[in-house]
Structures are given as C-alpha cells and as structure tokens.
C-alpha cells in the first residue's frame, strides 16, 4: 500500500516548501502568514481529492489504502500507528475545544503601535541646525545628560533607569527604530514625549518625558543629530 498516497503527500510537501521557503525569497515578496499557507494547503488537498476521485479506478486506488488503514484490515505492523492516530485525533479535538472555550488566563493583548503617525505640523520639518562635528558633539553631550539614563550610553535602550518601564525605551542601534524614521518624527517624539502619542501608541504607559517643558528646540535638534551619529544610523529621507 501507500504508492497511490505517496504522490499526494509529496505534492503537499512540495507546495508547503514553496510557500514557506521559496515565496519569501522572491524579490519584492514577504513571508506568508500561517493562515494563508493553511488555506493554500487545503486548496491543494481539495484539488488532489477531486483529481483522485475522477474515475472509479483512481478513486479506489486513492481511498482504498486510507480505508484499509482506518479499518485496520491487513495492515500488519502499521496497526500501532493506527491506534496512535485513533487515540490522538480525539485528544487533539478535545485540546482545541478546551482552548476555544476556556476563559483566558492571559492579560488583555496589547496591540500597541510603536511608531504611530505624527501630527501634521511635524511631518517634513528639516533640522535647522547645521550638521558640524561641533553640533553633533553638543548633541551627544545633551544626549548623555538627558537621554542616556534610559536609552543607554551605547544607544541600545539599556540605560540604568530603563528596567522598570514597559514599553522599554527605544534601542536606537536597532535598524527598526530611528533608521526608519525622519528627523522630524524624532523631533515630535522628543518634544511631546509619551503623553503626546495618539491612542494607538498607548500614551498612558510611556515614560518618555515631554522635553518641550525643559529643553529648547535647538537642543532637541542637536540631540537628534547626536543620536543618529552615536547609534551609527541615518535618518530616513524621501530621496
């Protein structure tokens, strides 16, 4: 047995491999979500079943081994596997049911947007401070005084005061933080702080100070230059 079932199994395996490992590597593509892969595999399976049951002969060749396996007739030592499947299937059904009906023990899921859209007046502002070794150095000095307790002397978000805060202070050396943002975005975030975030940014949780009440704008722009330089990142531009 198994010959007629081997082809469908191999086919499903190939489709899965393509969806999971080949598609994400096509230029301009992205990894597929598990639910979409599942859907494609279901479609493949349906196709196989329709193809295999087109004629009476192919139908018997396809269902025959499955029926023999389920009924356990003349399958020899596969009997152990059969008992395993017959035991495992109800257990999986029970497990799924438990998880879909049991009350959740986990705190509410938090879909916090890390980089929400800034207010209109902050988009496209350019840094008015000339970028010179001096101004960058000044910015780094301000950074060390005001920002490094949380964001860290190494710009890695691991300052000595960071540990109690949730969400954690941003790690500027991570390419998904300031490297993805324009200088004007940082200006907004530093000036208005955590309480300036829109609702999707969960402002009530953020420990980022509202620096506009303590620092002049010019210092903030210098801090931004110091941050990019220190974290070895460049601001995102439209060019």
């Amino acid at each position: 047995m198994g010959g007629s079932l081997l082809k469908p199994v191999i086919l499903i395996g190939i489709v899965y491999t393509i969806l999971k490992f080949v598609v994400p590597n096509i230029p301009g593509s992205a990894p597929l979500p598990a639910s979409l892969i599942f859907l494609y595999l279901m479609l493949t399976t349906s196709g196989i079943v329709i193809f295999a049951t087109l004629s009476g002969e192919s139908k018997d060749a396809f269902w025959g081994p499955i029926q023999r396996f389920l009924t356990g007739e003349n399958i020899g030592s596969l009997q152990v596997l059969r008992y395993g499947v017959l035991l495992l299937f109800p257990l999986i059904v029970g497990w799924q049911t438990y998880h879909s009906t049991a009350t959740s023990d986990a705190p509410p899921a938090e879909n916090r947007t890390i980089h929400p859209a800034p207010p209109g007046e902050y988009t496209g502002l350019s840094n008015p401070v000339a970028k010179t070794p001096d101004t960058i150095q000044q910015g780094k000095g301000f950074y060390a005084a005001f920002c490094s307790p949380c964001h860290g002397g190494k710009f890695d978000g691991k300052g000595p005061a960071a540990r109690g805060f949730n969400p954690p202070p941003a790690n500027f050396s991570d390419p998904t933080t300031i490297a993805m943002l324009q200088e004007s975005y940082l200006f907004w975030r530093i000036k208005k702080g955590g309480v300036g975030l829109p609702i999707e940014g969960m402002p009530w949780k953020s420990a980022m100070p509202r620096w506009e009440v303590e620092l002049p704008d010019e210092w903030i722009w210098k801090i931004i230059m110091g941050e990019y330089d220190g974290a070895h990142q460049s601001p995102r531009t439209w060019e």
Binding site: P90, L91, V93, G94, W95, Q96, T97, Y98, T101, A102, T103
Partner: peptide
C-alpha cells in the same frame, strides 16, 4: 466548563 466541553468533544 472548559474541561466539560473538552470531554464532550473527545
């Protein structure tokens, strides 16, 4: 109740 439903499903 989650256990009852699971037992029923099994």
């Amino acid at each position: 109740s989650g256990y009852y439903y699971a037992a029923l499903a099994v």
